[in-house]
């Protein structure tokens, strides 16, 4: 992984796209990419929680877990922190920002156990990112998620009306469409010298 913030962003956004190249967060990808509206709501919620989670877990890891020599508790701590964070954000939005809540509120509980969110927090630690790099990485990953899920939702709205063999209708054709989109994303390998 590069250290330059601009390259980190590009790597997370396109070259190592979280959905199509890293295969993370596939459940919401196939679940909510059936219409453009849900895709927008879901990507907004993921982007928001991803950034928050990256900050919170970065501070917890570097301020509490490392000094206390409790690195082995990483998995348990991160998942519990993210779960409670999402609950808290949901309550806060419902009380104070009704419009924002109605746009992405229902997706918030769904992404508590979204592996993309947890993966970003783990990768921030594995790549030894500082706070700025971690922020850029989470931002790029979240935007990459949004880009692909919105592109794919537009594609799937078309698929509903296409004449497709009965056995392939629904999930199978969605997977095969994902395969083709992913093939297109492989074309970004080598951009600014970035590799998989």
């Amino acid at each position: 992984m590069p250290k330059n913030p601009g390259l980190i962003f590009l790597a997370a956004f396109l070259v190592n796209n979280i959905l199509l190249i890293r295969y993370l967060g596939l459940c919401p990808f196939f679940g909510v990419s059936t219409s453009l509206n849900t895709a927008f709501g879901m990507s907004a919620a993921v982007l928001f929680v991803m950034l928050l989670a990256a900050w919170v877990t970065w501070f917890i890891f570097h301020i509490i877990l490392i000094p206390a020599n409790l690195v082995f508790l990483r998995t348990a701590t991160f998942i519990l922190v993210i779960a409670s964070l999402v609950q808290f954000v949901e309550m806060f939005l419902r009380k104070n920002f009704r419009t924002l809540y109605s746009a992405m509120g229902i997706y918030l509980p769904l992404i508590t156990t979204n592996c993309a969110i947890l993966a970003v927090t783990f990768l921030n630690i594995d790549y030894k990112f500082n706070l700025l790099q971690a922020t850029i990485f989470a931002l790029g990953t979240g935007l990459g998620f949004a880009l692909v899920i919105i592109l794919f939702a537009a594609l799937r709205e078309r698929l509903d009306f296409a004449p497709i063999n009965r056995s392939f209708r629904g999930y199978p054709i969605a997977f095969i469409a994902a395969s083709l989109v992913s093939l297109a994303f492989l074309g970004f390998i080598g951009l600014f010298g970035l590799s998989l």
Binding site: L20, F175, S182
Partner: peptide, 29 residues
């Protein structure tokens, strides 16, 4: 080489799922 990369994985699971729809007489979702 495609099979080692992500597109191959998506393609393969799509084909698996289609075979299941065909032979298990299940309505696809």
């Amino acid at each position: 080489l495609l099979m080692l990369f992500p597109p191959g994985a998506f393609l393969l699971i799509g084909i698996f799922k289609a075979l299941i729809n065909k032979f298990m007489k299940q309505e696809s979702l």
